[in-house]
Amino acid sequence: MNPVVEASRATALESRAYRPVGVSRLREFIEREWVFSWLILTPPVLFLLAFLGYPFFYGVYLSFFRREVAGPPTFVGFGNFVTLANDPIFWQSVGNTVKFTGAATVLKAFGGLGMALVMNQNFKFKAITRAVLLLPFIVPTVLSTVAWQWIYDPGLGLFNRLLVESGLAKTGPSWLGTPTMAMISVIIVNTWRGLPFFGISILAGLQTIPVDQHESATIDGAGTWDRFRHVTLPSLLPVILIVTTFSIILTFFDFQLVYVLTGGGPANSTHLMATYAYSLSMGAGQMGLGSAVALSMVPVLGLLLVLLTYYVRKD
């Protein structure tokens, strides 16, 4: 029996003396720490088991079956995964997901660090500025993505109108029309939306660095860059690593941005694993194959979660 439990038992015994004599045994039972804990824990745990645990294992089960829209499901073992391994679009979507996540995360991390350093100075209207800079992150993604679709419009969109008007180009690029441009455009929107999350989180981290660390470094003759390298960056590293891992998870599993902006096109060049899983299962009615695509993201999630736990522990 661990000492804390015993200590709390002792408190309970002590307190019994102050209570009326006829305290029922049931009440005494409920007052035990583990009984009380599990009494309140049971409803949320049952809820999560039913609506998160069950779907997860049911998804694993589904991935072993092939089920077309009509007709009963047939057991195919690892057949769906074999089909995927030979499916060039699946591998393309894996590549796209990695490119998309990698590029957007790097841009967000550096941009966010810049935003935090700029915001970490004294100036008027700081609170309002912070609220304004966070807006892209607040507004429903789908709604701002629809605005970006209009910004990218080849003929009448803002970007191409400005390019033509300023004389920089005769006709602007087809932002969503060619494979490379479409991928770049999708990365831009994800960066625009996610950068403030990095900025505000890193800013919160900056504000926890004690001022005297900077002062003593200055007295020791450290310049701005040295102070950044040796004082600011090391103390920010845990925050940056945690925010980055968070963001990688959100970006890797992103669905709505690509679904709205390109639908995975042109020619599957922006299909992410999540949008491909959706188009297989909902578009083509192949639930088993769609589940298999979704499940092949699990190892990545697992790895990221292990990394995250490691950072948090070390912290």
Partner: peptide
Amino acid sequence: MRFRGAPLLAITVAVTYLVPQSLLFVPMAD
């Protein structure tokens, strides 16, 4: 509170917090 299983449950909560919808939508639709 201190009780048996608490640390494991806390980790499970942290993990489920990061499980994205795109992982579960197929069985969830069903």
